[in-house]
């Protein structure tokens, strides 16, 4: 499609573009860290318990000193950033002082990641299939169902879908457990290989992305099928299967990347609701408990992690766009 000469040219532009984007990513992380740090210290209370009685000032000071909270706030910030940037040390979570923030996130991340990976697989598998089928059978009943699922998935919040699943499959039919994740009594063969308590969280969670993917896939397929080159290819006698694989799926890549760009960062924040409804012991619960417990190191780490993931996904989707579709111009910001 493109000549070698053009590629080198755009490689150059690409490098400059990526460099610029990385710089802005650092800027974003800096701003997020400052705002979060100062905002969270505005919240009343601290990593101590005054439920029974106000702490005697001396006792309170001892606790504050223990956590390094006795210093002026800008010093605290600089200390935190120094450790975080230079040593990759994000501190000790107040909720579990015998571990580190990094270790705690790494541990809870596993479950969230499991949910996420299964969600992505289900969303892409079913989403693309439905999208392709609907495109091939426009206005058939499958198409209508796809449209309906897409509508539902895009508009209805995941926790609402989750409640419906619970009402129907756990409360009414009693087929599936109300919640949990990898609970031993829900796993087949006593293993953690296949568990029935995966079904509802993953389905509830996947419906949104699934809808987006199905919708994108269908519309781009329809567009592609109307295009001349498909007709040409068909006229030349290429088999239907070949047409589909070569041209159409390639063109469906763009919507997939778009969908991925939306889904990946949301896997983290979105899991707050899914994990709350199904009581899954993943990272999601820490978003709320860290704030409730005034677990400053944990709050900072989570905010930075999300901001980082968002920025990174934006960057990657942009790069992938330009890679799979040279028509997308680099740095073409704004302008419709």
């Amino acid at each position: 499609m493109a000549s070698r000469h053009r590629i080198t040219n755009s490689d150059n532009a690409m490098a400059r573009y990526i460099l610029g984007r990385i710089l802005s990513l650092i800027l974003v992380l800096f701003v997020v860290s400052v705002v979060t740090f100062f905002l969270m210290h505005q919240v009343p209370g601290g990593p101590f318990d005054e439920t029974k009685a106000p702490l005697p000032p001396a006792a309170k000071e001892n606790i504050l000193r223990k956590y390094g909270l006795d210093k002026p706030i800008h010093i605290q910030y600089l200390n935190y950033m120094k450790n975080a940037v230079l040593h990759f040390d994000f501190g000790i979570p107040y909720q579990q002082p015998t571990t580190t923030v990094t270790a705690l996130i790494a541990k809870s991340w596993k479950v969230t990641a499991q949910v996420g990976v299964m969600t992505v697989l289900l969303a892409f598998g079913v989403g693309i299939t439905l999208g392709i089928y609907a495109a091939y059978h426009q206005n058939s009943w499958i198409d209508n169902i796809t449209t309906f699922i897409a509508m539902l998935g895009i508009t209805v919040p995941s926790f609402v879908v989750a409640m419906w699943l619970i009402l129907f499959f756990a409360v009414r039919l009693k087929w599936l457990p109300m919640g949990g994740w990898n609970a031993s009594d829900s796993c087949l063969l006593g293993s953690k290989f296949v568990c029935t308590d995966w079904i509802m969280p993953v389905v509830a969670y996947a419906l949104g992305p699934l809808a987006i993917i199905a919708r994108y896939t269908r519309s781009s397929m329809v567009d592609v099928m109307r295009q001349d080159f498909t007709r040409t290819a068909r006229a030349k006698g290429l088999g239907n299967r070949a047409i589909m694989l070569r041209h159409i799926l390639r063109n469906a890549l763009i919507p997939m990347v778009t969908a991925l760009g939306v889904i990946i960062p949301n896997l983290l924040t979105g899991s707050i609701f899914i994990e709350a409804v199904f009581r899954i012991n993943g990272l999601g619960k820490f978003f709320v408990t860290s704030i409730f417990n005034r677990d400053y190191p944990m709050i900072m780490a989570l905010f930075l992690l999300i901001a980082f993931l968002w920025s990174l996904t934006y960057l990657f989707t942009d790069i992938i766009y330009t890679w799979i579709d040279p028509r997308v111009r680099l740095g073409a910001e704004g302008g419709a």
């Binding site: 568990c195 029935t196 079904i199 389905v203 589909m244």
Partner: peptide, 26 residues
């Protein structure tokens, strides 16, 4: 000719889900 593709994948997935759903808690 494309039926294997359009039906196959969702069917497989559905089957998987059903299988899991029908097995009573261990």
């Amino acid at each position: 000719r494309t039926r294997w593709f359009t039906y196959g994948l969702p069917l497989l997935l559905l089957l998987g889900l059903l299988l899991q759903a029908c097995v009573p808690a261990a």
